[in-house]
Structures are given as C-alpha cells and as structure tokens.
Design a protein around this nucleic acid. Structure first.
Length: 185
DNA sequence: CAGATGGCGCCTTTTACTTCA
DNA sequence: TTTGAAGTAAAAGGCGCCATC
C-alpha cells in the first residue's frame, strides 16, 4: 500500500516568498495540504468565500502556509463551488426541458383532437355570421350579444388558436395590451 | 479628465501527485 | 509488484475590473 505524501509530510508548509522557484532554481514541488489544513480552510470558506488581506495573512500564519497558498486554495475552492452549482443548474434546466417537451406533446395532441372536432362537427358555423367578429389585436372572437358570449364564443376562441405557437410572455411583454382587452367588454 | 499602477478575482492551462485496473 | 491511464488538487499565467494616484 502506498503511503501518500500527505501522510508523510503532514502539511508542513513552508513560508517562502511568492516565487514559483525554490532556492535551487528548480520548480517548487507541489505540496498537498494536510487534512487538518484542508478542514480548517473549509471551515473558513463556510464563513466567507473571499478573504481580505488581513484574513489571508492570519489564516496563512495559523496554518503555517504561505499567504499565496491560502489565496490559491480559496480561488480553487470558489471554482469548485461554481462548477458544482453549474451542474445543479444544468440538471434543473434538463428537467425543465423535459417538462416542456411533455407539455408540448400534450398540447399538440389536444390540438389535433380539436381540429378533428372542428371538421366533423362545425355546429357553431350555423350561428348567424354577424354574431361573430374577430378582434384584430388578439384574434379572439368577440360577440355582439350577451347570449352567445358563452359556449359558442369559447369554442370558436379555442379553435381559432389554430396552429399558432403558444407564446409565454416575458415579464415585460404584454400579450394583450390594455386597449385590446377593453374591446371584449 | 485621461493614463499609469497595483490589487484582486476569474478562467484556462499546466503540473505534481494519487488512485485504480 | 509494476505500470500507465484517468482523476484531482495546487499552482501559474493571462485578462479584465476597480480604486487610487
């Protein structure tokens, strides 16, 4: 069984300066942080995900690390957090996509059924032509009398959706501007 | 007010190290 | 036991943003 460097060196940080070379001029060996150091940094990260210079120095001193090491650890830790969050967001969007796909399928089916109904039983067509008027702004059927403002109008309204895509308005978008709504009163 | 400078965070890449088949 | 591939964490380097001078 291999003994990890972590066990061997136990996180003995060195507190050399900031350079990437050691005193021999060769590139500095990477040192894994000890479990204790990592755990302490984790705890610190829970309190604040970024450090001011004072906190960085204090932490470095406490853990016997170079401030740069502490800084880099926090940088990498933030990156890991972000990556994890991105994965979570991605899963959420996938689920949204699935839901919308399913709803779309259902609506297509409903539309087909309504079209079939329209061709086989066009009973509303027997209504006097003058009673059905189309609102030019929203393309819904408006009626002249209160009497036929019920079933016939609603069915015609439903059918008049035809094959237009269903558009969900964004917060700042108005599908039916106020003046058009007034037309139905 | 525009430009120089330094500090900091983020992103990408490199590198050293670990794990596992 | 050895070895190479894959994965991970530490670190480097570059860039942009912001504050200060």
């Amino acid at each position: 069984m291999m003994r990890s460097r972590r066990d061997v060196e136990g996180g003995e940080g060195n507190d050399r300066g900031t350079s990437d070379d050691d005193e021999n001029g060769s590139t500095r060996k990477k040192l894994r942080l000890s479990k204790e150091q990592s755990a302490f940094l984790e705890e610190s990260f829970k309190e604040h995900t970024t450090l001011n210079p004072k906190q960085k120095l204090a932490l470095a001193k406490q853990l016997n690390l170079r401030p740069r090491q502490v800084e880099v650890w926090f940088q990498n830790r933030r990156a890991r957090t972000k990556l994890k969050q991105t994965e979570v967001d991605c899963e959420y969007l996938k689920r949204c996509c699935d839901t919308l796909t399913e709803e779309n399928r259902r609506l297509q089916k409903e539309l087909q059924e309504l079209r079939a109904l329209k061709t086989s039983q066009p009973f509303y067509m027997q209504l006097p032509a003058t009673t059905l008027t189309m609102c030019p702004s929203c393309e819904r059927v408006a009626t002249n009398t209160a009497a036929n403002n019920n079933d016939a109008s609603q069915i015609a309204s439903a059918l008049s959706l035809s094959n237009k895509p269903r558009i969900l308005p964004f917060p700042n978008t108005q599908a039916h501007p106020p003046p058009a709504q007034k037309a139905h009163q």
